[in-house]
Every structure is written in C-alpha cells, then in structure tokens.
Design a binder for these strands. Sequence first.
DNA 1: TATGAATGAGAGTTCATTCAT
DNA 2: AATGAATGAACTCTCATTCAT
Lengths: 209, 209, 209, 209
Amino acid sequence: MPNMPSRRQRRFAKRQGEILDVAARIFAEKGYGDTKVTEIAAALDIADGTLYNYFDSKRDILLAIMDKTRSDIEPMLQEIGELETRDDLVAVLARTYDVFMAQLPFTRTMLMEAWADDTILQAYAVVCLEHIRQRMHEFIVSRVDTGDFRPIDPSPTTQMVLGMFFAPVVPILRGITPPLSPEQCRALAEAAVDLLLDGIRVRPERGAE
Amino acid sequence: MPNMPSRRQRRFAKRQGEILDVAARIFAEKGYGDTKVTEIAAALDIADGTLYNYFDSKRDILLAIMDKTRSDIEPMLQEIGELETRDDLVAVLARTYDVFMAQLPFTRTMLMEAWADDTILQAYAVVCLEHIRQRMHEFIVSRVDTGDFRPIDPSPTTQMVLGMFFAPVVPILRGITPPLSPEQCRALAEAAVDLLLDGIRVRPERGAE
Amino acid sequence: MPNMPSRRQRRFAKRQGEILDVAARIFAEKGYGDTKVTEIAAALDIADGTLYNYFDSKRDILLAIMDKTRSDIEPMLQEIGELETRDDLVAVLARTYDVFMAQLPFTRTMLMEAWADDTILQAYAVVCLEHIRQRMHEFIVSRVDTGDFRPIDPSPTTQMVLGMFFAPVVPILRGITPPLSPEQCRALAEAAVDLLLDGIRVRPERGAE
Amino acid sequence: MPNMPSRRQRRFAKRQGEILDVAARIFAEKGYGDTKVTEIAAALDIADGTLYNYFDSKRDILLAIMDKTRSDIEPMLQEIGELETRDDLVAVLARTYDVFMAQLPFTRTMLMEAWADDTILQAYAVVCLEHIRQRMHEFIVSRVDTGDFRPIDPSPTTQMVLGMFFAPVVPILRGITPPLSPEQCRALAEAAVDLLLDGIRVRPERGAE
DNA sequence: TATGAATGAGAGTTCATTCAT
DNA sequence: AATGAATGAACTCTCATTCAT
C-alpha cells in the first residue's frame, strides 16, 4: 500500500495547518505569552496532549507560524522584477499590501514576538524585510546614479521609505482599523509612491523657497 | 529637624529611580514578560523583597517606567510651536530625535509592551504619539488649504509621514545600530524633512536645487 | 457512549470529595491558616498542582467544605417538626448531636474560621445556627404565652439554652474528649432537656419526680 | 544613683503595657494571623524594630497578652468564696461578666487563638476556665450530696452550666452586640442562675407530666 | 534606645509538558 | 491517534525579623 503513508501524511499536514491557523489567530489576539496551550486546544476542540502529536512544544507552533508566513511571502518577493517606473513601484507596493492583508494574523504574531525576541527577528522578520530593503536600496542607488533621484544618502532614505510604506498598515495590524480591500491597497500604494517621488510640496515654477 | 523627612524622601526617590533605570534596561533587553523579579533584584544587588519596599508589584515598575517616560517627553511636546517653515519642521524633528536618544531603554520598553497591551498603549504610547500626530495632521491640512501642499488625503499621509520620521530610530531602539549624536539627529531631521517636502525625484523641468 | 462523561464526572466528584475529606481533617487539626497547600497534597499523595485541577484556590477548598457541611446539615434541620413535649425536644437534640458527631472535622473547621472570618460566619455558621435559634425562640415564646413556661425574657434565654445544649460538644470538637455514641447522644440530650425544663434544684414543696 | 534602673524599668514596663493594649485591640479586630507587625507599630507611632526591644517576637506579644489577661482575671477567681445561696451564685456570675466586659479585647484574642492553638488553650484559657469549672463542679457535687440538687451526673451538667453562663457573652465577644453595663450584667446573672436552679418550666402543683 | 530599609525563606498559584489509558 | 489528569519547576509577592545607623 504505497499511498497509505501518503494519505496519513496528508492528514497530518492538514491537521498541522489547522492548528497553525487557529494558533496564529489566538496569538494575534492575545499575544504569544498570554495564550495558554489549553486555549488553543479548546479552540480546535481537541485535547491538550493531542497538540503534542503535531508539534513538539508551544514555541514550536510559533516557529512553524513564522515558517509558514515566510514561505507564503517569499515567492511573492522573488517575483519583484525591475523597478523602473512609477507604475512598477505602485504595482509592487500594492501587491505587498495585498499579501499583508491576506496574512494578518500571521504577520501580527510575527511582529509582536520579533520585537521582543531576536531569534525570531533574525530568522523570520529580517528575511522578509531585508529582501525588500535591499531591492529598495539598489533601486535608490541606481536612480541616484542615473540622476533621476536627488543625491541623497541611500541608507537612511531606504529606512525612511520603508517606514513610510509600512506605517499605514500598523493600525490594521493592531486591529485598530479594518483591513484594506484590494482597491484601497492600490490607492494607498499610489499615494505612497507619489509622496515618495514628489514630496508633499507644490512645486513652485522656480524652486525658490 | 526640618529636612530629615526630606532626606529620607530623597533617598527613597533616588532608590526608586535606580530601580527604574535598571528595570527599564533589563525590560528593554529581554522584554517585560521574560524578565524575572529576581533578575532585577540581582542586577541591583538587593534582595527580591526590597523591590517591594519601593513598588507594589512588578507591573507597577513597568507603569512607573511609562509614567517617567511620559513626563519626560510631554513637556517637550508642549513646547512645539507653530510649524511654518522647513526649518521649523527640522528643528522640531531634530529635537524629538534627541529626546528619543536620551530615553532609549524607557522608550523601547514602552513600545514593546504597548504593542501587546492595549492598556499601556492607550495610557502612554497614544499620549505621546497622538499629540505629534495631531500637530502634524493640522499642519498638513492647513498647508493643503493654503495651496502650499498638494491636495493629498491628509490622514493616510500623516500616518506615512510619521512612519517616515520614526523608521530610522527603529533599529536604534532595537539595539541594532548605535544611538545618534545630536549632529546626526539634526542631519537626519534635515534629510527626512526634505524627503517629505520635495520627494526623492529630481524635478524634471528645471531640477536645480 | 452515553456514560463516558458520566464516568468522568463521577471520578471528578469522587476526587473532589477525597480532597475535601483530607483537607477538612488537616484544617481541623492545624487550622486553615497554618495548613500549607503542600501538606494537603502530600497527605493525598498528589502533586501540589493537581489540587488546582479540582479547586481554584486554597480558600475555595475551605468554602467547599463549608458548603458540604451546610448541605449535609440543612436537610436535617428542615425535618424538625413541632416541638411539643419533652420527648420532642429530646429527640431533636439527640438527632442534632448525632449529626455533629458525623461531621466533626467539617464542623470544627467551620467554627474555627467562622470565629475569625465574618464572611464564613454569615454564609455558613449563621445559616445552621440561626435556624435552630429561631425554632427555639418560637418554641419558648409560645410556651411562655401558654403559661407552660415562666415569663422569662425569651432572647437571652434562647442564647443560654443554645449554649447549654452545645457546650458538651465543644471538648469533642476540640478533640479533647472522644466522640459520642448514639446512646450517649440520647442520654446527653435527655439530661440537657431535663436541666432546661426543671433546673437543677430539687423542688422544695413536694419534690417527687 | 540607685533608682535610675528602677525608673528605666518602670518606663520599660509602661511601654510594654501600652504595646499590649494596642496589640490586643488590633488582634481582637483582625485576628492574630491577619495583623501585621507594621500595623501594631504604626498604631503606636513607633518603628517596627522598636517593638523588638520590648518583645522577642510577634508571638511573644500574643503570649504576653494571655499572661496579662490571666493575671488580671486570676485574683478575681481566687476571691470566689463559698457558693451557698442563689445570691452567692448571682454575685459571682455578675462579677465574672463585669470582668469580661472590662477585658473584651484580651478575651476575644485569647479565645480566637486558643481555639486553633493548643499551647495557648492549655496555658491560658484552661487556666481560667478550669478554675471556674472546678468550683462549679465541687459546688454541684456537694449540693447533690446534700439533696438540694437532683441526682444528676455532675460532669456533663457542669459543662452545660458553663455553656449556659457564657453563651450570652459570645455575641459580645464577636462584636455583634454591644458590651453590657454593670446593671445588665447583674440582670443577666440573675436570669441565668434562676434558669439553672429552677428550669424554664412552671412547676405544676403536683409534678405530673 | 529608636529607627526603618533590607532581608529571604516560604507561601499560593500557573501552565507547558508527559504518559498511562 | 487521541486523551486529559497529573506533574512540579518556577513564578510573584509577603512579612516577621535583623542590624547598621
């Protein structure tokens, strides 16, 4: 019976996924430290001990959530092509917002723990963010070289740009404001990119200040 | 003996301050939840019980740290005058960075807990951030009205501006990059304000700055 | 499997009962305050934490003991019928002594804590004692009205009668003298009722009894 | 200076007495276990450590209260002369009530702890009560011998008589009813003695029941 | 003698984890 | 595979007692 183990494995993986979904939701609501294993089991309507057939420890569940988030997000990041025009930037950013909206519980959990735990920060948050950071950094450096961008210092600017891009989703992560629809994601991306490119100030005909 | 009680009070307040400094540092390093009362006491080289002569509970220490941060920061916020010119913005932002640098352990602890604990978020973080947010929002709205700023949507823009301004200090809060000197604070403030006002793009028509 | 939950519930209730029995015995021996949770657990040969699967707190165990005592005693109190003749009084009092003998550890614990804790006093001791008090009070008042009893002041007399009835069990509660057999209960009840009705003095005029 | 030590001793004894008065009052209000040393010191307006110049431990204070109660009560007990007539009994009982009223905090503390602590019970409560018990027992035995009292069993009867006599002061000890005036003490003593001697029942002309 | 800050053993309680069923 | 009662180390907090001033 060559597919018996396979079926078992599929069942096993499916159960693991269910546990991660529920755990991520509860972690996101109450925080990792304030979530009891019993609560996760109760939400899944299984016994406490059963969880330990699927994960070695509570922390293991957290790390699996991180892994899942990362592997869901990474492919998307790989797809980022050349950033040439304003519309390239808008498209990538809108897409990133979409992914965030789809991954809210995972993301929130990741950020909450990453803030306090360097292991997680390094292993997961950095992986995602660093990739974005580097692409943005390269992009800025190259445009400064071509003269399209002003000769700013690329490193702090990159950091500021990331802050600018992600600040609007912070209240959503915190549950203060509702998630964004795809249309809202696109509009927000446009506003952010325009702010980045042209600033907030109306250009005088001649740049005297 | 008119100053006997006063001396006692001073000793008491001094001790409280020492405890807060040490506790804030450890909280900032390990997080509130992962810090044991015994560790704080050991770092101070006092008995566990001695802590309870100065604070009612571990949580009380955290709240006292919040209070201290808030009362250190609030007067500075009150001093923010009219934001009229680019230099006003730069001055205020540079000043804010200075305060952050002086309050690193306190601030880091506050943010870490605020992320997970709405009580603290509302009572402390919001107090500080909301004030800044409102000033920035008013400023943007008025400049849009006068036609100095483009007719952007003020609310998400405010959020993005705050993200842009605070993103550079995040790695410092996390202890990843070293604190900034006052000169660096000023330089960073200038870069941030210029990015906000004019964006990153060289002006196509007559790009001389 | 319709009785699976039932079996579990029975096990749970049985365990709770075992814990209450042991705890009541130790409380009765050493007092509530001087009994450590660890001691109760050790006497039951279980871990400290296991106790908390059955009761929320040490105090909860105490209150459960009170509840059990009360619900064991109350039905008996409800059965008290009309008190008409000497034999009615004797029967009720003998019955009451029997119940006390059966509930020694519970009763001793209840009295010990009730003396120091008004909450327990009101919620448990008063419930039992007050019922008896009122029946006795009514009985005395009605007999005074009919002229069967001398025109004494019913309230302090009721108090004295209760003292008279319960004083003999105090040394037993304290563990100084051994519990009474049912026969001894009856004999004591007769002696007490006769003392109440006729006093200790031989009748001067025509002393035949 | 031969009387310097004496003056010091007097001061010392006076201080001790003040401490005992205050401690007894607080013990009576809250119970020994629930009273903190700090509370006693605060009520006396002295430092915690100062208490330890006068007593070796908190428990020592309790024992000293017991001692004081006993030595205040014992002389009174020694004075009890022959119990011959009804009026002898009334006088002694009224006197005993008076002493109880004067010693309320001490007495309440003693009883509260004696109930839970055999050391105290044996050393103090028994000393007082046992003396009364023996006098009462002798009295009853002798009167039974002379034929003045019915041929009852003296031991349980003594116990019941003591219960009858002391039951009225229990609510006062508990603070439920206010202390008695000397007149009330006398009236209660008369009622108690009459109940003891003649019972509650009206004597029929001829003792048929 | 008086002080009161410092002490630290020990209390009740929690909860991630185990394992016999 | 599933169960959930049992576990016990580890936590925060209390307070009688001490001792340098």
